[in-house]
Every structure is written in structure tokens, then in C-alpha cells.
């Protein structure tokens, strides 16, 4: 399968996702330090119009481990963007240099528009509050490797209103008919329009405000950060964020095979003591970004 552009999880069927995940399994030993010349002679351009560390570094790592080269425009202040060049023009120019473009941009829909102007594959690495499909693919890969995508019972916890990661993940999980529980404070509930969309896909979705209610009945706990700036009242923030904190105490009620995931960076939503338990999988999750992005890059560049 050749991937044209990777813009949104909504563009993928379950079969297509499975093919990417299987390719990532094959490439995982390379991600762990093996050698490969799969993408030797290929050039990847990483265009980050917004700061990013882990996403940019994991794309860099994936490309280099496969023997390819990476170019970027360095600091944004020194680039033609500050001269007022449009994104459409930037994409047409860089498309002449590279075999694929990884794009992060502050505007929603930027990657979709870039794809219309690009003669090389565009890989969306985050467009504003919009999509970040390789994050979702690595989340699915983590679940596949550390738990199971079939018959999955998962709780998504935290900021389900604004968090793009959870929207995209919930959509993808609906393709796997996962049993989903949405756990969030009242003011950060998942928007109705997204819930309706999940139900249209045939997903089984429940909602609760209490983590305690579900901790004993799930295989995966996917934790996201509750941001301080969402709460006008700091006292309210402390009260709310405290009640979703994952601690060893809470985990006493958990299923022994429970796996905890987090897209990182975390602040204090998972206690550091939890890192030492068998539940913690967030650092593995972060590593899995490399094999998954390798698979995506190889397929985007038409290399089997």
C-alpha cells in the first residue's frame, strides 16, 4: 500500500490502519538500534511552524534510522515565512527539494490545504487544534503491543473537550468497536458533535465524572493533561485536577493487566511512583512513535 498524504485518521479504513501497524512491527527492531538502508537516498523535509520536541525528534530519528536525510528551515524567524510567504508557496518550493514533507502548523486544516498544493506526500504532524494522525497511530500501536485492540475496554481521562489527541484516538478506536468510557470533569466533557460521530460508527461510549467508577473494569487507561488555563478559578482547577490524579492508591482497585498510557508531556496527572509499577506504559508509548513513523515514512515514499 502506498500512502498519498496522511492528514486525518478519518481518511483511514481499519484495514489501512492494520497495514501500517503491521509494517511498524517489522521495523521495530530497526527503531531499537538496528541498521537499515530502506530510505537511503531519500530526503524528508520537516516544516514546524510551531514548536515541538518529541514529534520532530521522533520523525528525525525514524528517517535517519532508515538511512534517509532530513532537512528543515531552521529557526522560523530566519525563514521566508517572516517575509510573508504563503504556506501554499512554501509547500510548492519545498516539494521540489524533498521526497515527503512533515508539517506542523498553528491553523486547523493547514495540512489538508498543503496536500492540495504539494506534489510530494504531506504528513500532518499537528494542525492547530485539529489532527495529529501519527500520534493516534502510535497510540493504537501501543495498545496492540502492550494490550489488545480486539475486545478492548478503555477509559479516556482528562480534558476531553479540547484535547485533539483523544478526539482522534476515540474516532480510530470506534473502528475497532472498542468499549470506551469517557472520564472528565463536567466542564471538559467530549463535545456532542464528536460523541455523535462515534455513535454513528457504532462505538459503545459511556460517560462518567469519576475515575473510581471504571478503574476496575478496563484494560487501558489513557490519561491526558487537564490544563490550568481552562479554569478561570485556580482553586477549582486544583480541586478538579486532583480528583483525576493517577496514584498507586487508585491503582489498588485496577485490573492487574491494566496498562496506563499518556501522550506526554505530563505535569502531575500521573504520580511518579506509578512509573515503577507494571501498569506504566507511557515511555514505551513514546518510543513506539519511532517504528510507527518509520512505517508511515516508508509507505509515503513508496518503499516496501
Amino acid at each position: 500500500m502506498m500512502l498519498e498524504h496522511i492528514i486525518s485518521m478519518r481518511d483511514f479504513s481499519r484495514d489501512e490502519i492494520d497495514i501500517i501497524l503491521e509494517k511498524a512491527i517489522v521495523l521495530e527492531p530497526v527503531a531499537r538500534g538496528g541498521k537499515s538502508t530502506l530510505l537511503s537516498g531519500k530526503i524528508l523535509a520537516t516544516l514546524f511552524f510551531e514548536p515541538s520536541t518529541r514529534t520532530r525528534l521522533s520523525f528525525d530519528t525514524a528517517m535517519k534510522r532508515l538511512g534517509g536525510e532530513v532537512i528543515d528551515f531552521g529557526a522560523l524567524e530566519a525563514s521566508s515565512v517572516v517575509k510573508g510567504e504563503s504556506l501554499a508557496d512554501t509547500i510548492r518550493v519545498i516539494g521540489g527539494y524533498a521526497d515527503a514533507i512533515v508539517l506542523r502548523h498553528p491553523r486547523e486544516g493547514a495540512a489538508r490545504m498543503a496536500a492540495e498544493y504539494s506534489n510530494v506526500p504531506i504528513i500532518n504532524a499537528g494542525d492547530g487544534a485539529g489532527h495529529h494522525p501519527t500520534q493516534t497511530l502510535l497510540d493504537l500501536y501501543t495498545i496492540m503491543r502492550e494490550s489488545s485492540l480486539s475486545g478492548l475496554r478503555i477509559a479516556l481521562v482528562g480534558d476531553l473537550k479540547y484535547g485533539r489527541t483523544v478526539h482522534s484516538l476515540a474516532y480510530a478506536l470506534s473502528l475497532y468497536h472498542a468499549d470506551m468510557t469517557l472520564v472528565s470533569p463536567q466542564q471538559l466533557k467530549m463535545p456532542d458533535v464528536i460523541k455523535k460521530d462515534l455513535e454513528k460508527q457504532g462505538a459503545n461510549v459511556r460517560e462518567t465524572t469519576r475515575l473510581d467508577d471504571v478503574i476496575g473494569d478496563i484494560d487501558v487507561l489513557y490519561v491526558t493533561r487537564i490544563q490550568r488555563e481552562r479554569f478561570p478559578d485556580p482553586a477549582e482547577y486544583l480541586k478538579v485536577s486532583g480528583s483525576y490524579r493517577v496514584t498507586e492508591e487508585l491503582l489498588k482497585k485496577a485490573n492487574e493487566n491494566l496498562k496506563i498510557m499518556h501522550p506526554l508531556p505530563r505535569v502531575d496527572e500521573i504520580d511518579h511512583a506509578v512509573d515503577r509499577t507494571g501498569f506504566a506504559r507511557y515511555f514505551e508509548q513514546s518510543f513506539y512513535g519511532v517504528p510507527v513513523r518509520m512505517a508511515v515514512l516508508a509507505m509515503a515514499m513508496g518503499v516496501e
Binding site: 504556506l87 491553523r107 486547523e108 486544516g109 490545504m113 494542525d127 489532527h131
Partner: peptide, 28 residues
């Protein structure tokens, strides 16, 4: 949304019926 900028892009929506909904092709 990128369609609300100076970029050379024309707004485009997928139309859903009953109830009527327009989903932006760019930002969803």
C-alpha cells in the same frame, strides 16, 4: 481554519442531510 486566512484556498464543505450539517473539508 486555514480557509479563513490569506492563503489561496476556497472554502469547501461536505454536506450531510437529515439533519443538515456542513463539515469543513479543511478543519472538520
Amino acid at each position: 481554519c486555514i480557509s479563513n486566512t490569506d492563503e489561496p484556498v476556497i472554502s469547501k464543505f461536505t454536506v450531510y442531510k437529515n439533519p443538515l450539517e456542513l463539515r469543513c473539508i479543511y478543519c472538520d
